[in-house]
Design a protein around this nucleic acid. Sequence first.
DNA 1: CTGAAAGCGCTTACAG
DNA 2: CTGAAAGCGCTTACAG
Lengths: 342, 342
Amino acid sequence: MKKASLNDIAIHLGVSKTLVSFVLNGRGKEFRISDDICQKVMDAAKEMNYQPNRIAQGLRTGKTNTIGLIIADIANPFFGKLGREIEKEAALNGYSVIFCSSDENPEKSKQQIAMLQQSQVDGYIISPPMNSEPQIRALSKGRTPFVLIDRYFADIETNYIVVDNFDAAYKATTHLLKLGRKKIANITVNLDLVNMKARTEGYKKALTDNGILVDKNLIKVLPFSHESMDISLAITELVGHKEDLKADAILFSTSKLGLNGIECISALGLKIPDDIAIVSFDNADAYKICVSPVTVVAQPLQEIGKKAVNIILDKINSPNGTPKFQQYTLKTEFIIRKSCGY
Amino acid sequence: MKKASLNDIAIHLGVSKTLVSFVLNGRGKEFRISDDICQKVMDAAKEMNYQPNRIAQGLRTGKTNTIGLIIADIANPFFGKLGREIEKEAALNGYSVIFCSSDENPEKSKQQIAMLQQSQVDGYIISPPMNSEPQIRALSKGRTPFVLIDRYFADIETNYIVVDNFDAAYKATTHLLKLGRKKIANITVNLDLVNMKARTEGYKKALTDNGILVDKNLIKVLPFSHESMDISLAITELVGHKEDLKADAILFSTSKLGLNGIECISALGLKIPDDIAIVSFDNADAYKICVSPVTVVAQPLQEIGKKAVNIILDKINSPNGTPKFQQYTLKTEFIIRKSCGY
DNA sequence: CTGAAAGCGCTTACAG
DNA sequence: CTGAAAGCGCTTACAG
């Protein structure tokens, strides 16, 4: 069964494709095409199972109704959930989305941006990896709108949506302090990312505000493509000797770190929260059913997804609208579970 | 900065766009275009940051280098990981993928298929919801290749990749029996899906093969859009009274069920595996750090993803190749952890 | 009210 | 070796 085109319908009905196009785009009334003909066209379209060729429409109109999404890894539940929200909001507006996982690798994201560009996407939603400034700067020279999520670059003016990482880390650390923890560690990944940096800064500020000196040995910065091994090592250094724990609490800056970390902690025979208290960024499902359910900083994923899509739509519909850039710093939610001893 | 087209380069260089097209498609040698001109064209393309318009190419060639993927929910880690493998394999072959989450809703998948059709995807990878037979049947009337994953319809001849669910459930149940469990329950979702049905069948067969009567009260079938409430209820019915446990083990047919189930079990104050043993399908990350790490049936996600993409590519490249349909039933891996008492 | 025609950016027979 | 031309399937000024 071959696909039917506009022209096939036109020929079948003995009218012009102009007319068919008008009717099928719901502009029949506008051009005062008789109800009779309108009906005939619509019937024929249905009968021939006409599916408009979006690619031809795209070439002609310059709009593809497609959004490109670049995140670190769709298999990471944080990005999976976020991706889902973006897909949902896009679909509500008739847009589809092309998913790309960059693995935090700027080479990959660069290639993915090029590919999306070639695909003529109408907009991009990007969680930019480290060292991808040049790509983002190049993008902002173009006409296609984009919004950065999860992180942004302070020295490039763009649309962005992030959360208040500093504040969240500050509160999480303060929570631990209030519960009497003194030797609070922070395990994080490469600090060149503004969001990660803010988390550690918030952690430090909470300590100093409470008269505690920041101990560099308690801050473990892992490479981005960390393996369980790296985390094992970090944890062992922090809590290796039960008799002489260097740390009595850990703030994990990502859930990937936290989940691996908890596995190590359990393996070492340490009890959460008795021996060591835990707080983590991101509300992974696993945290709910952990040995002791984990207190977390939850991000408003639905809001981020919705806003991201709507910023793109705004810009598509009024490219020169005000404000020139939309920038949001959203609040996080602090969910207290058992892992800190309340 | 406006995008440069083939024609822009041609004009800039004072040659025809035919020539530019040949060179840029690496067919310069083939048409014996002088190295000198080739170089000039390539330099100009780079200088003008030429990006081929894939949409125009698509319209002309009938190939979009895009695959459409329909799964239940990209936020579900099982599908997230699978989606990632598919994305990876597709990218290796120069294809991008449009992700669609159907929520197991045939209305949605129908609409998504139509949308992908209109987008002129070169192939589909689909995890078809219940009651989507008509859509799949319609698809097989068309010329675009597709492969079903995770499930298939016995009465429609298609490409598919599934796992041996019967065998996996049989082994999991046998494992529990060997460890002395007698009252093994199965919590699953709507049985109209062939994969879910096979899991319960394997479970039943293992029981009867070991001389145990199947007790219908021990099989809980939840609606597809189940909530924690439903699971709570099911669990309570099975293990509600500690003095008189109806079940001493549970086989969960999906990890979503299992994760929620474990939460309930913990809430009821029951110990795993002492009071109740647990086995689950799908190797969710959370299962590794559970109160007691969960014994699981793991699916070969990478293999599924790779095969799915390659079946599509095969069919694109030789539409009439043999075999007419590629059908795989892959083996699962049984990973023994603490939740059954070994 | 309706149709002929141009054109979006490519690729590819065809001609020379 | 290189170019003029057709055409993929649409939309949309323009003309009548």
